[in-house]
Write a protein that binds this DNA or RNA. Structure first.
Lengths: 122, 122
DNA sequence: ATATGTGCAAACTCTTTGCATGGAG
DNA sequence: CTCCATGCAAAGAGTTTGCACATAT
């Protein structure tokens, strides 16, 4: 049976107060403002559970390392700032993208990442 | 002064005989068919040099880990097979994509990845 | 009371670096 | 004959796992 701990509540709160995908390090940083003893291993274990529960989803942007965001968001893409490395949501999507695949390839998803500098870093 | 070694010739040949981005492990595997003693550290060092010379370019697909491809290819995107994990080129690109960024964000590039199963794995 | 969750540290994986030897020039 | 390049093994970064202790139920 799944327990409701301070650590899990803290991590849930972090995601409810942010509107962009977070890295494990970012989750740790924000989570520690609520539960200072929070450990990185707990962050990794907890996001895995939340992903399994479909409360979070994994975001795989170029550059390696997974980020996490609330799973209930409608289809969208991301902007990755080359300066601060933060990811932001991009709410529009070019339709028809999945038709670009070579003949005979079966497409079941796509990921579009824009690169540049965010408003703050410009 | 830069030297022309068996290892470097082998790695060059690998890229000239393939039309998709390769991971360091794939480069090692194919390179060893030409120079069996080839080491992984040499692969990493060599691709870094080729990237600096702009003969290769880095491809950062979702899922972590850099892949490499010939730098002189025209703008294109990639298809990543969920079954064999190989990347393939997608030669068309939806224009207009960079306009999707939020207001105030400065876009200087984009990466589009299609996911699914390649012809061989279907 | 009991079994799940946590924090720490060790293990792992992928990539990079140090160093002695090899080989291009 | 020089010095750059290589291969190995050790060191780093990021992530996962084992274990003893803490704590939700």
């Amino acid at each position: 049976m799944r327990r409701d701990t301070r650590q899990r509540r803290a991590i849930r709160r972090v995601f409810m107060n942010v509107d962009r995908p977070l890295t494990p390090e970012e989750i740790l940083e924000y989570g520690r403002r609520i539960v200072p003893s929070l450990g990185l291993a707990t962050v990794y274990r907890t996001v895995k559970i939340f992903v399994a529960e479909r409360w979070l989803s994994e975001v795989e942007l170029p550059g390696g390392g997974l980020r996490y965001e609330l799973a209930d968001r409608p289809h969208h893409h991301h902007f990755l700032c080359r300066s601060c490395d933060q990811a932001f949501d991009v709410h529009r999507c070019p339709d028809e993208v999945e038709r670009l695949a070579p003949r005979g390839f079966e497409v079941d998803g796509h990921e579009l990442t824009l690169f540049g500098r965010c408003v703050t870093c410009r």
